[in-house]
Computed example of a mutant assay.
Amino acid sequence: MSENIELFENYTAKTLGYLYSTFPIPSDFNFFDFIPKLEYSEFLTHQLNAYHTINYLKNNHFLDFESLDLEMGQVKNAILKPKALELLKQDGLGMQLKKALNAGRDELIRSVINKALEMSLKFMF
């Protein structure tokens, strides 16, 4: 699997998991907190992936935010949109995601996110 796809799944999980845990209160967060400690060149790859993942989630109606700063990693007033909330409520996906994130098991995290994204396609058609 492509590293970018794995990073997308990881940052999707961390972003949606965080916003699910704070819902319905809009939250500020720093996506740098989602990035592991890495060498500078690797960090840049993760930084770009996290930033573009969060933008993708907004553009595809999973979340909304007031602002997103690539350089500082800051996201202001982020909240899940109804589409994401409904997805995460289906089959207990939100709780499964929270447990997977707490356990830090990447395969389980990706499995839950892939199931949610697969289910989102059904909502589109």
Rank of each mutant, 00 (worst) to 15 (best):
Q47P: 14
L48A: 13
Y40R: 11
S111R: 12
K81Y: 10
L101E: 06
A103L: 09
A103I: 00
L93K: 08
Q90D: 10
F65G: 03
P36M: 14
F62A: 04
N60Y: 11
L48P: 06
P82F: 09
N49W: 12
D106P: 11
G92P: 01
Y56D: 11
G104C: 08
D91M: 11
A50N: 12
R110G: 13
T45I: 13
E66C: 00
N114V: 01
E107N: 15
I79Y: 02
Q90E: 13
D64R: 04
Y51R: 08
Y56N: 11
L48N: 14
K37R: 06
E39W: 03
E66P: 00
S111L: 15
N77F: 08
M95Y: 02
F62T: 01
D64I: 04
P82K: 10
N77T: 06
T45P: 04
I79P: 02
A78Y: 04
N114W: 01
L44Y: 13
E66D: 09
L93Q: 05
I109A: 12
D69T: 00
E86N: 12
S41L: 14
L93D: 06
L97T: 04
K58P: 02
K37S: 12
M95L: 07
S67I: 01
G104F: 03
M72W: 00
A84E: 07
K37Q: 13
L63E: 03
L87D: 10
N77W: 04
A103T: 07
G104K: 07
A100V: 05
H61K: 06
E86M: 10
Q90P: 00
F34T: 04
S67H: 01
F43D: 09
L44S: 14
N49K: 15
L93G: 00
I113R: 07
A50F: 12
F65W: 03
V112C: 12
G104D: 09
K58L: 04
Q96K: 09
F43A: 10
N102R: 03
A100I: 01
T45L: 12
Q96S: 06
D106R: 14
A78W: 05
K83S: 07
L87G: 09
E66T: 05
R110M: 13
N55E: 15
G73I: 04
L80K: 07
H61T: 02
H46T: 05
Y51G: 13
H61N: 06
P36T: 08
G73R: 09
L97W: 01
P36F: 11
D64T: 09
K58F: 02
H61L: 08
F62K: 06
I35G: 07
E39Q: 14
K98M: 06
A78L: 06
Q47L: 14
N59V: 00
I35A: 06
D91W: 02
L68T: 02
K89N: 14
D69Y: 01
H52R: 15
K98R: 01
N102V: 04
F34V: 05
E66G: 00
E107K: 14
E42Y: 10
L70M: 04
T53D: 14
S67R: 04
E86F: 11
D69G: 02
S67W: 03
P36S: 10
